[in-house]
């Protein structure tokens, strides 16, 4: 397989930021009460991840390794400020619900960890695809959790009434997000166990 496609696939499933690496868990619980919110924040993360990966890859030879972390943080903060000004214009209603988390993308561990592990060592093009893959993986995770919670909690999907009743109200309450992620993680562990015969150790702590 082409290496660029490989990088995207890698971010989507084998190193999925939420379920595999267990990074950036806060937004994956907080904004996933509906698919729409998850989609919007996911797109914002894709944007920030791709642009900061590219920026770091372009300037990697100019950044002194001793001050690389502050430099990365400032680069991320720059792109977050940009998306924070674009989103309220594009979709004011959704932005109102995810506003705090769009600003908090700065503190998402996934973005800075990709800059540190990948973009600071690789040239522009692979960095772009790695950033894109990770962003898409994150978007996929948010939408999956959002779909499960919205369908079981409110009986709707992307705002359309699907079931006509509310099977499990607890799912859109704060607690529901924790349950859904716990069960999806366990489910992925189970699938991997059936396929490979061993239980993978859960990802990094944060």
């Amino acid at each position: 397989m082409n290496r660029n496609l490989q990088l995207i696939w890698n971010g989507l499933i084998p190193e999925n930021p939420i379920f595999r690496l267990a990074l950036s868990l806060c937004p994956s619980v907080a904004v996933t009460t509906s698919v729409k919110n998850g989609l919007m924040l996911g797109l914002a993360v894709v944007f920030v991840q791709v642009f900061s990966s590219c920026t770091v890859a372009l300037f990697r030879s100019y950044i002194n390794p001793r001050i690389r972390i502050p430099a990365y943080v400032l680069i991320i903060a720059l792109w977050v400020s940009v998306i924070d000004m674009i989103l309220p214009v594009v979709s004011p209603a959704v932005y109102k619900e995810v506003a705090l988390f769009v600003k908090l993308i700065v503190a998402f561990a996934i973005i800075i960890s990709r800059l540190e592990l990948f973009a600071s060592k690789e040239p522009f093009v692979p960095s772009f695809f790695d950033g894109f893959g990770m962003g898409i993986g994150f978007l996929f995770g948010l939408c999956l959790i959002g779909a499960i919670r919205e369908l079981s909690g409110a009986g709707t999907l992307y705002g359309f009434d699907v079931l006509g009743f509310r099977p499990l109200l607890v799912m859109i309450l704060p607690a529901g997000g924790f349950f859904v992620i716990g069960f999806i993680m366990a489910g992925m562990n189970y699938i991997e166990y059936k396929l490979t015969g061993k239980i993978p150790s859960a990802g990094g702590a944060h």
């Binding site: 349950f179 716990g182 993680m185 366990a186 859960a202």
Partner: peptide
């Protein structure tokens, strides 16, 4: 399958 993070989430 629940050892580690999954059970912590629950």
């Amino acid at each position: 399958t629940f050892v580690g993070l999954p059970i912590a989430f629950i």
